[in-house]
Computed example of a mutant assay.
Amino acid sequence: MLQSLFNGLSGMLSFSKGIEVISQNISNMNTPGYKAKNALYQEVLGSQYGAGSDVAGTAMQQQNGDFQDAGSPTTLAIDGSGFFILRGENGENYYTRAGQFQLNEEYMLVDSATGKYEVMALSEAGVLEAFSFEGNRVRPPVATSEVQLAGNISSDEGEHRIDDLYIYDIAGESHRISIELINDDAGSWTVNVLDENESNIGSGSVAFDTDGSPLEGSSSAAIEIPFAGGQTVEFNLGEPGSFENATQFVSGATNLGATVTDGGAASGYISLNFDNDGVLNIEYGNGEEEEGARIALANFNDVTKLSQSGSFYQAGPDVRMIIGNANEGVNGKVLGGKLELSNTELTEQFAQLLVSQQGYTASSRVMNVANQLIETLYSSTGGR
């Protein structure tokens, strides 16, 4: 009879712990990345008829929460399996599904809540390193290396001039130049480069074959131009034997022009976005694009063994972990500009709450009945 009393008590304690788990889930229904938990009830063995029940622990629900537009390109979510990896101030690793990240003053990607925990990237060598944007925030200047000529020039022309071209030196400074082509007869042309003061700053020669296409070995002129630091610019007619760019036809009108194919000043970034592979894509003000670092993800053989440290998880030495790239293997894909919400389902939690309430009430009724029976036993014994 006494065991019935203790069984009822253990039931009340177990359901009480279960209600604590449910209340934790409900209180975190608006916490980004939160994973709801289920209480793990177990039978306590003792006598032949058992010794009640207990809560052995909790199990994390693994399904994704809903995804919400965050309005920030550095806020990330994981569609599928995996955790973001954060490194604390003492070098310890933390894991989270809440990708509320931002760039700090040192252009390191950090957790917004703490402002200190660094988000980890995975290098090409497969080594974890802090995700840094410092080396990508400004696109360095690029010196012009090629000017492509295109169109026709008649062999009857004595000379031809192309004005108002802008090329860049190694410091990113822009210079206005003109190209002067002088007919040397037999398909050969001298190429003079003139600066904005009409001074000749470099010369070379190009030639056409008898069929009017660029001549093999003379289809371009590499001209040294004495800008700051000096540079060589190739003035190119096109592929030898090809008619796609510059040509020389006697019967054709002269309409030869030129395009500067590369070069530019230093330029800052204007937009960032992460692709599904977790790679940062950067667009600069000069129209160029570049890839930055790549987010690292961690996967665990048993997430129930993770311990919580505030809003983050930590893995003990007995937890097997795989670190890799997003959208590879078992890892899910990264969603840039999205935030994963809590996966707490209120309908499910309220249903479990009602069941736990009924279980708690029934256990208390068992204690009450057991107590009445014991009192009856004592009363009948005392009355003899």
Rank of each mutant, 00 (worst) to 15 (best):
V250D: 10
L306Q: 06
A171C: 02
S16Q: 08
N371S: 12
T261C: 01
I162S: 10
S220R: 07
Y49N: 05
L103C: 08
S220I: 06
G212Q: 10
D262A: 13
L272T: 12
S14E: 04
I322Q: 14
V55P: 01
G115A: 05
L272D: 15
T75G: 02
I282P: 09
A296I: 08
D185L: 14
F312Y: 13
N273G: 14
V319Y: 01
L306I: 06
G187S: 13
G316K: 05
E289I: 09
A351R: 09
K37C: 09
V206T: 05
A36T: 05
T31V: 09
E89Q: 15
L128C: 10
L353S: 02
S218G: 05
V250Y: 13
D275K: 11
A370S: 15
A222W: 09
N281F: 06
S309G: 08
S311F: 08
S154M: 02
S72G: 12
G18N: 04
H175P: 11
Y269L: 15
N25S: 03
R161D: 09
L373C: 12
Y360S: 03
S218I: 06
G324D: 03
L335F: 00
Q102E: 14
G324R: 03
D156V: 10
V44M: 15
S220F: 12
R161C: 11
T75W: 00
E92N: 11
T210N: 13
E283Y: 09
A186M: 08
I19H: 01
D318N: 14
G57V: 01
A315T: 02
S188P: 00
